[in-house]
């Protein structure tokens, strides 16, 4: 796809011609974005056991669709849960946290963004962003347990004999969301079993699960403060039921952007890769000038 078709028009001029890759290895899926002279390529696969192998597969896929090779790439930024052990051979690279990357990615998709909900496989995060530059102003994570995360929804879907993708759509059919009081995955499982025994509909249970998760996110923003524009990123952002219930619970509309926000982290990583190259070039220029002056 063309960069100008997905990136916020106010940020287009910030994208350089440098060929870079951002790789976001999450706990459930690996995502990657390649920026190349006006074009943006994406790749997504389930995270495997070995993060490096997942990263290599993502890169291979990007090269297949772009026709490029590793020699063409100037910089790679790795992010996400699996970022720690990534290696990219001779290509310059660095590791940045997913919080910084999601903020930058969301900023390039909508430069008015001030708040981000990121619900990933193993944690959820509320992030406040500076709309001037896409930098993180403040963040908070919920990682006390799997509750309020994609893993929680995945488990719930399994209990309701649905796929994760179906869970959100099913919840939209609810007439009265079930009251899921427990925020512990293990105890919530018992609650869902009890609700099933009472012949509660799958849709109502599914909606209840989403409401419970959204309540958790709301508490994060109660502490952090929430300002529009709000962008929803992470693996769960494609869940239509979650989007709806988040908007209702938070009382804010989630901004529509032109790229699937599951790629926000990888896009942010790619943007940061370009910024790293720009900083390095500026440093070299400063050093050259000061050497000349001396």
């Amino acid at each position: 796809m063309k960069i100008r078709d997905v990136i916020d028009s106010r940020r287009i001029s910030d994208i350089t011609s440098d060929r870079v890759i951002g790789i976001d290895i999450g706990s459930r899926t690996g995502k990657a974005v390649l920026l190349d002279s006006g074009k943006l390529y994406t790749a997504i696969i389930p995270s495997g056991v070995h993060n490096q192998e997942t990263a290599d597969k993502l890169v291979k896929h990007l090269f297949k669709i772009s026709g490029l090779t590793l020699d063409d790439i100037a910089y790679i930024v790795g992010t996400g849960y699996g970022r720690v052990a990534l290696e990219f051979g001779e290509v310059d690279n660095k590791i940045v946290t997913e919080i910084t990357c999601h903020a930058m990615g969301a900023h390039f998709l909508n430069s008015n963004v001030r708040s981000i909900v990121d619900i990933g496989g193993q944690d959820s995060k509320a992030i406040r962003v500076d709309p001037q530059n896409g930098k993180v102003v403040e963040f908070i994570m919920n990682d006390k347990c799997a509750a309020g995360t994609g893993r929680f929804l995945e488990k719930a879907a399994h209990m309701l004999d649905l796929t994760t993708e179906e869970l959100g759509d099913e919840s939209l059919k609810a007439t009265k969301p079930s009251d899921i009081s427990s925020q512990c995955v293990v105890f919530a499982e018992s609650e869902v079993i009890s609700l099933k025994a009472k012949n509660e509909t799958r849709a109502n249970i599914a909606a209840g699960i989403h409401v419970a998760t959204a309540r958790r996110v709301k508490n994060l923003f109660n502490r952090l403060g929430l300002e529009a524009d709000l962008v929803f990123t992470g693996g769960v952002s494609n869940n239509s039921g979650m989007r709806k219930v988040l908007e209702e619970t938070l009382g804010y509309k989630i901004s529509e952007v032109k790229l699937n926000t599951i790629y926000a982290g990888a896009l942010g990583a790619a943007v940061l890769a370009q910024k790293s190259l720009a900083s390095r070039a500026a440093l070299v220029e400063r050093e050259t000038l000061s050497a000349q002056a001396a």
């Binding site: 720690v84 997913e98 919080i99 910084t100 944690d123 930098k135 993180v136 963040f139 994570m141």
Partner: peptide, 14 residues
């Protein structure tokens, strides 16, 4: 845990 490390690193990055 990875999450604790993420918090610290993201905080310093911020």
């Amino acid at each position: 845990s990875g999450q604790v490390l993420t918090r610290i690193k993201a905080f310093v990055e911020m």
